[in-house]
């Protein structure tokens, strides 16, 4: 690692610096990527001094706006989030370790790069501009079961899964102005571009995460299945936002992490959830239909069963 370190104090200054350099916020992913020579750069732009991007603002019926420089630990401690969006607190507590939550930011969490060991390791893989995905025919226990090809990563963010279930939006700012996109449109599949995980173009910065006002009466939860209980990336995770009425689920949403190259939600799954009876037979029929269209790799078929069982557990707990 050898680079010059630039500290702009306004977003306009960042745009003037050009688009080639990586942005440094929490650094928990970037420093690792630079140590592993995945990102080679002669300059790093520290964006921590940009004003106004580290706030959480309650906008009433317009929802809550979360600045990208808000630290994960601060999200957990924030009273507005605790009161109005407990799902986000529960999810943030599942992210990484206490030390990493003290450093890592919300913006960095949703923009983090995949943990695929071929991508992180010394392989000239397709995501790094090569022409092979080494997970195909390789060690693919942790890779995706749906949405893959030609690269088979899973997206590592916990927060993005919860934000997807919450219908959050992401504001992107560039020299040319601002746009706001739903979380679902922010992330892309490898078939669209196998070298990046989201629509951000060079020179674009995430400037806000907007949580719409949450409708009343919904129960929420985030279950993250990890191989190691202390802290780890998700093998499979599920965020749920459900409204129940007696022994029926009136409506709701399920979003999945660890199954696809981006946080995954299917309209078909959510439609089947509407009106679902919570007796054992109906729930079993529902869960065993999940990911029937998955295309597991050689060593990760267990993820289909895991995802189904996590959903069953959620329905048992919430409904």
């Amino acid at each position: 690692m050898q680079f010059s370190y630039i500290q702009p104090t306004s977003i306009e200054e960042v745009f003037k610096l050009g688009s080639a350099a990586p942005l440094y916020a929490g650094g928990t992913d970037l420093i690792g990527l630079m140590k592993d020579d995945i990102i080679k750069t002669d300059k790093v732009i520290n964006i921590k001094k940009l004003k106004g991007l580290d706030k959480i603002e309650d906008k009433g019926n317009k929802g809550i706006e979360i600045g990208p420089l808000v630290k994960i630990a601060d999200l957990i401690e924030n009273e507005t989030i605790q009161e109005k969006c407990p799902l986000l607190v529960q999810t943030a507590k599942e992210i990484a370790s206490p030390q990493l939550r003290n450093m890592g930011t919300v913006g960095g969490n949703i923009c983090q790069r995949p943990r695929c060991w071929y991508y992180r390791g010394d392989f000239d893989c397709i995501r790094k501009g090569g022409d092979t995905c080494y997970a195909v025919g390789g060690e693919n226990k942790y890779h995706c079961i749906i949405g893959g090809g030609p690269c088979f990563i899973v997206h590592p963010s916990d927060l993005a899964v919860a934000l997807l279930a919450l219908d959050a939006k992401i504001e992107i700012t560039s020299e040319n102005g601002q746009k706001t996109v739903p979380v679902n449109d922010f992330f892309i599949l490898p078939e669209d571009d196998e070298t990046k995980e989201n629509i951000l173009e060079p020179g674009e910065i995430v400037t806000k995460i907007i949580l719409p006002e949450q409708a009343k009466g919904f129960k929420t939860t985030y279950i993250k299945f990890k191989e190691r209980s202390s802290w780890d990336f998700a093998v499979v995770s599920v965020a749920a936002v459900l409204k129940t009425d007696g022994n029926m689920i009136k409506n709701g949403k399920l979003a999945f992490g660890g199954v696809a190259p981006h946080p995954w939600m299917e309209a078909e799954i959510n439609q089947k959830l509407t009106g679902l009876n919570t007796d054992e037979a109906s729930v079993d029929a529902f869960t065993s239909s999940l990911f029937h269209n998955a295309e597991p790799m050689e060593k990760n078929e267990y993820k289909v069963i895991l995802a189904r069982n996590l959903v069953k557990r959620i329905i048992d707990n919430l409904a």
């Binding site: 030390q99 003290n102 450093m103």
Partner: peptide
């Protein structure tokens, strides 16, 4: 706050 000093510039 606790941090991992290996990841802090």
């Amino acid at each position: 706050k606790t941090v991992n000093s290996c990841l802090v510039l």
